[in-house]
Design a protein around this nucleic acid. Structure first.
Lengths: 184, 184
DNA sequence: CTTGTTTGAGACATTGATGTCTCATATGAG
DNA sequence: CTCATATGAGACATCAATGTCTCAAACAAG
């Protein structure tokens, strides 16, 4: 059986998502390979985590590119962005969480670039008059991560249907909780 | 120096918030006590984590009680709730995150009760007509945790001023991002 | 088929965290 | 002051995870 790097990383992420202290034996077992092979490709836990980060950032960057954040209205772009994150939301939640709890030496630069792109989207919406201007783009970016992560966890635990993912996040984020009279 | 249990737990939480794999030596050092004393009061890492959970749940329950979720409008109650979580937001973020990544055998029952109380608040707001009804109270509860945690991290990292905490969370959650014509 | 490469299984030593113990010192109650 | 108790510092054994190695078997390329 040929070695499938991405498959191994996905299995590792799935396992580490709910058991962050999993052993390399456990990770290897979850991926269906031997510990020796795991160690041949990822020399140590740190290397594995870094590879995991790289894959996550790569996937998320694809998602961001695919959402075309500069096209159309900022509102539409935000909806596209959230919708395209759905397939990688679990991975994203894991990475965002892991970044907090295991403060690495330096923050991945790809991650910082994604942050900047999303913050720029919020800023664009504010400058175009679509979004309120009393919430900082940097905080909005983190708030979006928070909502996406929280939703990903609830989907993983079965408390929420995956099909409601985009509606819930964009519904709350754009429209807010308050009920309003129908727009004229 | 007498042993200050809560102080030790707070120091442990602060440290573990950004270094989840901290050693007992490091935790003891951070708390200003010796490893021997730490081990006398918390026999092993698991015991420490459980004590941490208990303290967190106790604090959060106090906060929830203090916010009087049943009084006045649901909107006002939500604002009170968020405002009173501010002092314990870091702790809350740590616990919520830790609960995901280190899936304990059973979920703390006090935690489940708090969940239920907050979900009941959202339900009350929906039934009174204040809140929109197309977002489930369970998910809204998790979304609130997500926003609170995300904001707590940004405050801890200095990206956001603590004084904006309540405004940002309630501003986004209640009003949403879309800019609207002033209410008539 | 033959050859070179990769994997799986397991043994082994090493490392680091942990649990446990002792003893001197500090602290507080009486 | 005196005694009982708790703490700090450190030694020590233990245990789990890790890194490293060997060797046989599976596999792919030629």
């Amino acid at each position: 059986m040929p070695f499938d790097r991405d498959h191994v990383l996905r299995c590792a992420a799935d396992l580490l998502s709910h058991k962050a202290t999993a052993t390399q034996d456990e990770i290897a077992k979850a991926a269906g390979i031997s510990r020796a092979t795991l160690h041949r490709h990822f020399a140590g836990r740190d290397a594995l985590i870094r590879a995991l980060e790289d894959l996550g950032v790569r996937q998320l960057q694809e998602v961001v590119d695919q959402a075309r954040l500069d096209d159309g209205s900022a509102t539409e772009a935000l909806v596209r962005l959230v919708e395209s994150t759905r397939p990688v939301a679990g991975f994203l939640a894991f990475l965002a969480t892991e970044n907090q709890l295991f403060e690495g030496e330096e923050v991945n630069e790809g991650w910082a670039r994604i942050d900047a792109q999303i913050a720029a989207l919020f800023k664009r919406g504010q400058e175009s008059g679509e979004f309120r201007i009393d919430l900082s783009p940097v905080w909005l970016t983190e708030a979006l991560y928070g909502l996406v992560s929280a939703t990903a966890w609830t989907v993983l635990s079965g408390k929420t249907a995956p099909r409601d993912y985009t509606e819930m996040i964009t519904g709350l984020m754009l429209g807010g909780l308050e009920r309003r009279a129908p727009q004229p």
